[in-house]
């Protein structure tokens, strides 16, 4: 439980720092942010084989919502 509290505190601190120190980027300033090189993995598939591969060996990977459900190959 102490680990969870520490993680939550660290996350909140990072969140506060990130949101407090950022500039307001205008839409016409986002050319580089929209460049494909900023998100090459943005495929249509919900879960890449890389992620499936990690979940076959790592008990701490996976979890959370937004990815495919379990499959036998993950065993």
């Amino acid at each position: 439980m102490r680990i969870a509290a520490t993680a939550a505190a660290a996350f909140s601190l990072v969140l506060a720092l990130a949101l407090g120190g950022c500039a307001n980027v205008k839409p016409y300033e986002r050319e580089k942010l929209a460049d494909p090189i900023m998100n090459l993995d943005n495929g249509l598939g919900k879960q890449t084989l890389e992620q499936k591969l990690f979940s076959t060996r790592e008990a701490g990977t996976g979890g959370g919502a937004g990815v495919g459900g379990g499959c036998g190959c993950a065993k």
């Binding site: 949101l19 500039a23 980027v25």
Partner: peptide, 19 residues
Amino acid sequence: SAGLRITQLLSPVAFVRMG
């Protein structure tokens, strides 16, 4: 399962995501 994800632009060349 449940997830919360936020994305914040930091500058014209950088952003941060966390969740």
